[in-house]
Write a protein that binds this DNA or RNA. Structure first.
Length: 486
RNA sequence: GGUCGGGUGGCCGAGUGGCUAGGCAGAGGUCUGCAAAACCUUUUACAGCGGUUCGAAUCCGCUCCUGACCUCCA
């Protein structure tokens, strides 16, 4: 097992050698989506990034338990601890039960992940399925003295916590400044401290999603679900906790506080945060309304897109940037990635057609080492992809007869490509032909070839132009004619 | 206002002191009835000013611009 993996840990703001708590096991928890609306591309980027990370751990031979939750309760719209939760609001809007909203968007999310070829997590727990665990955790935090109950709502006592623990450990902010910049408590507010947040919230009479608890009927606060579910499935202390960077300052900060207050241990050894997808330099977000939806992306039905792009082209586009960098989304950038991806896949296809030589003038070991070095350096997929394009260059060169490789080298090259392109990067071939259509086209192409042999170029051009108008592009190569959808 | 990031060639995006990442676009070429595609070769860069150094895109200082978080968001 490779043990040279380096991970950037938000907790220490440095790159650290990865040493699992209980090798060969790795516990990975990632904050999943809040399923009250369609996931947009920005959400997907985070999960594609963690899919890459998950896949690389698997490739290295670790036994990974990957837990990614579905938030289906407890998330409040607008100001803290006031008003309806997002599910109730959306349910009213769409005239559905809250759980119908949850079901609809959970399935939509899974479909999207599947289109992007993201492996399903080992466990995908829901907040509503773990109300008991959350109540137990709130009880323990109360018992340990880090929370207080007011009128059916339980708040986390940040001030008390700060006396013993570093509340801002993840973001390194100054507590005094946090206090200064947090809004004043209103007269009717029940919270003692400005930074206090709700662990359990009393349900108003009209609130639909509600559960009984020792403090009356209510529902859980947003942050407690991840603390409760991560410790249930991965233990009080586990290897990696991940999520989008936007979650670090609030959600993850509070998660750490809850877990420390409950169990007196840091929940995760490594905290990993993925950066945002931007559109024209601004963050793609639900509230800004600049999100791209799956349908718009694949059909191209969006003002910023000139055409539709396939899920694998988009995945490749995402992987061409490092997960901790912002990535700017544009039609041109997508177009570039689409072509690059096709070039990579084309070279992979050539691997089967290469003829072995007696000697080899390629350095496969060096190439392989550089691929691993790239991924070991905090999952640097863009550098890995650059190395894979070196492999593309080698493959094309062998195909042209300009470079020689032994049968063994060819086999190793193929294995290398398979490992990194398919297993680690999680790309897959996007077959663009159905059997019926393929056979039909083969027949038409054979007619055209006859015309060409007879130098009847009027007919051959007519077929090519006609098919082009139908969205089929013909390409004449040495071996014959191939086709693809435009 | 506070905290933390960025500013790399036409575009996207790696790179933390010396060894021109990579992809796309552009240019030239090979192949081809033509075209397209494919392949080969190749030009263009490190926001500005100052400093440290034999040497800086990379370290330090200042300036300008910009993003994220601080209030729901991956």
């Amino acid at each position: 097992m490779d043990n040279n993996l380096i991970i950037y840990n938000t907790l220490t703001r440095t790159k650290e050698k990865f040493e699992p708590l209980h090798p060969p096991l790795v516990g990975l928890y990632v904050c999943g989506p809040t399923v009250y609306s369609d996931v947009h591309l920005g959400n997907c980027r985070t999960f594609v990034s963690f899919d890459l990370i998950y896949r690389y751990f698997l490739h290295l031979g670790y036994k990974v338990r990957y837990v990614r939750n579905i938030t289906d309760a407890g998330h409040l719209e607008g100001d803290m601890d006031e008003g309806d939760d997002k599910f109730a609001k959306k349910a009213k809007l769409e005239q559905l039960e809250p759980m119908e909203i949850v079901q609809k968007y959970t399935l939509g999310f899974r479909d999207m992940m599947s289109l992007f070829n993201a492996l399903p997590p080992s466990i995908e727990p829901t907040a509503t399925g773990h109300i008991i665990e959350q109540i137990e955790m709130v009880k323990q935090i109360l018992k340990n003295g880090y929370a207080y109950e007011v009128n059916g709502t339980v708040y986390f006592d940040v001030e008390k916590y700060c006396k013993e623990f570093n509340y801002t450990i993840l973001t390194n902010r100054q507590l005094e400044e946090l206090l200064e910049n947090t809004r004043e408590l209103g007269g009717q507010n029940e919270k003692r401290g400005r930074l206090d947040f709700a662990l359990w919230i009393k349900a108003k009479p009209e609130h639909i999603m509600r559960w009984p608890s020792p403090w009356g009927v209510g529902f859980p606060g947003w942050h407690i679900e991840c603390s409760a579910m991560s410790s249930k499935y991965l233990g009080d202390s586990f290897d990696i906790h991940g999520g989008g960077m936007d979650l670090a300052a609030t959600h993850h900060t509070n998660e750490i506080a809850q877990s420390q207050a409950c169990n007196h241990v840091q929940p995760a050894k490594y905290w990993m945060h993925t950066n945002m997808l931007t559109v024209n330099g601004a963050r793609m977000s639900k509230s800004k309304g600049n999100g791209f939806l799956p349908g718009e992306l694949f059909t191209g039905n969006h003002p910023l897109l000139s055409r539709g792009f396939s899920p694998m082209s988009v995945r490749f586009f995402m992987l061409q940037a490092h997960y901790r960098s912002t990535l700017d989304f544009s039609n041109d950038a997508l177009e570039a990635s689409d072509k690059g991806f096709k070039r990579l896949m084309n070279a992979y296809g050539l691997l089967d057609k290469l003829s072995p030589s007696q000697k080899s003038d390629i350095d496969l070991k060096g190439l392989s080492d550089r691929c691993y070095a790239a991924m070991n350096d905090d999952f640097n997929s863009p550098v890995l992809i650059a190395e894979l394009f070196e492999a593309v260059h080698i493959i094309n060169s062998i195909y042209d007869g300009k470079t020689a490789a032994t049968a063994q080298d060819l086999e190793d090259l193929k294995l290398l490509m398979k490992n990194f392109v398919f297993d680690v990067l999680g790309l897959k071939e996007e077959s663009n032909q159905t059997d019926d259509m393929g056979q039909l086209l083969d027949f038409i192409i054979s007619l055209r070839s006859e015309a060409k042999v007879n130098k009847d170029y009027a007919t051959s051009d007519k077929i090519r132009i006609g098919l082009n108008a139908l969205g089929i592009q013909l390409k004449d190569n040495k071996e014959g004619t191939t086709w693809n959808k435009i």
